[in-house]
Amino acid sequence: MAEKLKLEVSDEIAIKIQGMNKWFGSFHVLRDIDLTVNRGERIVVCGPSGSGKSTLIRCINALEDHQSGQIIVDGTELTSDIKNIDRIRSEVGMCFQHFNLFPHLSILENCTLAPIWVRKIPKKEAEETAMHFLEKVKIPEQADKYPGQLSGGQQQRVAIARSLCMRPRIMLFDEPTSALDPEMIKEVLDTMIELAEDGMTMICVTHEMGFARQVANRVIFMDDGQIVEQNEPEQFFNNPQSDRTKLFLSQILGH
């Protein structure tokens, strides 16, 4: 196990969620969520499937709408106002379980599309930025290929680079390694660790507990649409308080 990262967390608030509730039809997915994330925090969200952890982070960039409560991202409240939503989405990057690269565009085009059309950055400059981030995720030589020609791990790293090209202040990860072969998980996690070292505010839904111990400054455990326990990783793993957390940890760390 690598050294625990020691990183600064500022007092500035990046995301503030207050009394947030969400229903899918009559199904109550998220119940009274309260969560404050400071700039520079690395938060890992874990929990059994169906506990609402993906839905929670999808609410933060309005891929899902919430029915009550408040979500304030970077000082902007998420309402149904499309202008606010577009502003928040360009400040918040997101990585998906299945990468969701655009298969009809080359890697470079995947990375430059949003900067050119949303940020209105000149094409040449956008391409330089894209190459910078592709180098950061260690695949600059794939820039002219298409997503279908890359391995899963490489695709996920491109997806991270694509988000970074928008220069987001917050990154959301929705089970970024769940669809990958064991060999490729490491290359993606290494990229995420580097990102954390650069001081990015991150919320990761993941089952990689090693990553949580090494990178996270807070681990959140969710079950049945509510936050059951949150703590520093050391405390969370070695001294869980709730019975539900103990059961969950024994299930995933048991073998």
Partner: peptide, 17 residues
């Protein structure tokens, strides 16, 4: 796939784009 719509939304493209 729904993921294509979501990815387009998540990088900040508006409906027309």
């Amino acid at each position: 796939s729904k993921g294509q719509y979501e990815a387009a939304d998540s990088i900040g493209l508006d409906y027309t784009q």
